[in-house]
């Protein structure tokens, strides 16, 4: 049977296939992004029908704000710790769960993947209760002073409490990506390396790692983005408190825009966040792409 032809060139077909994606992207991303940039130069309160154009006043105000600077410090340290621990732990887990030495690999994989299917607010609220009701009892039992009270109520520990929960949930997807990456490494390279007398570490560094670079760069971008825009866990667990000690930029934007009726200011801060994330991602891709195995 002959395939049906309606007289379309290959180019038109390709164009039509990409069109829905482009439209969705434009309507849901580019549109809001540009209106956001527009509102960031106004003093709109999120409610009024009237507002004034104030150019860069919101940006100037943002940079002279002590609170914003404190939130940047929090967000950056959170992002660094999150990205570091998630990458390292998920890579270790992936290597372990890809190894033939471990039995019931699939069961373990499912177990470690499980947190990913839960919503982050749900996870936050569940851990909130664990931190309140369970951790202090364990801390008292073991005689650990720092853990004998709710860590989320302690400004020095609240960051780590939130970090722990986001790592717990955050390693699942990177782990799966790394396992997929590991399975794409051709076995004969290992065989050849073994014949040449390479150690396990050498094999990992010179064979496995180059194959993992594309995955690694995706994981890094995902996690840095997740860290810089973090919101749900903090909203569910501390609301930014105690005081301002766990307030992230994402939460500050939400509070300014929707809580304090300073929509223009919130929009300006989110534009700054957008620029920061874009810069990070570009730097990262251009750096890591040079190290990949399949760059010809």
């Amino acid at each position: 049977m002959q395939p049906l032809r309606i007289g379309m060139s290959k180019k038109t077909t390709h164009f039509l296939f990409t069109l829905p994606g482009v439209l969705v992207f434009a309507v849901l991303f580019l549109g809001p992004m540009f209106t956001g940039i527009y509102y960031s130069m106004t003093n709109w309160d999120g409610l009024s029908k009237k507002y004034n154009f104030i150019w860069f006043e919101n940006y100037i105000q943002t940079f002279s704000d002590v609170r914003f600077m404190g939130d940047i410090r929090f967000t950056l340290s959170y992002t660094f710790l999150l990205t570091f621990f998630v990458t390292v732990l998920s890579l270790l887990l992936a290597v372990a769960l890809n190894s033939r030495l471990i039995r019931f690999r699939n069961a373990y994989r499912s177990a470690f993947f499980f947190p990913a299917v839960l919503g982050s607010i749900v996870v936050g609220l569940i851990w909130n209760q664990i931190f309140y009701g369970v951790i202090p009892n364990i801390g008292k039992f073991l005689g650990i002073n720092a853990l004998s009270t709710n860590p989320l109520g302690n400004p020095n520990l609240a960051l780590y409490g939130i970090l722990f929960v986001s790592i717990w949930q955050g390693i699942a997807i990177p782990m799966v990506l790394f396992i997929a990456g590991l399975q794409s490494v051709p076995q004969h390279l290992y065989e050849a390396a073994t014949l040449d007398g390479a150690t396990i570490f050498q094999k990992f560094r010179d064979i496995t790692f180059p194959f993992l670079v594309p995955v690694l760069s995706v994981v890094l971008v995902l996690k840095i983005r997740a860290g810089l825009t973090t919101f749900e866990y903090i909203m569910a667990m501390t609301g930014g408190g105690p005081g301002f000690s766990t307030e992230s930029i994402g939460l500050l934007i939400f509070k300014q825009g929707f809580g304090n009726n300073r929509f223009g200011l919130g929009a300006a801060q989110s534009v700054l966040l957008l620029v920061a994330i874009a810069l990070f991602s570009i730097l990262q891709f251009s750096y890591l792409n040079r190290k990949g195995v399949d760059q010809q």
Partner: peptide
């Protein structure tokens, strides 16, 4: 090429 395809797919 397979590696490439897979990497692309993951991406």
């Amino acid at each position: 090429r397979r590696v490439k395809m897979k990497a692309l797919l993951i991406l």
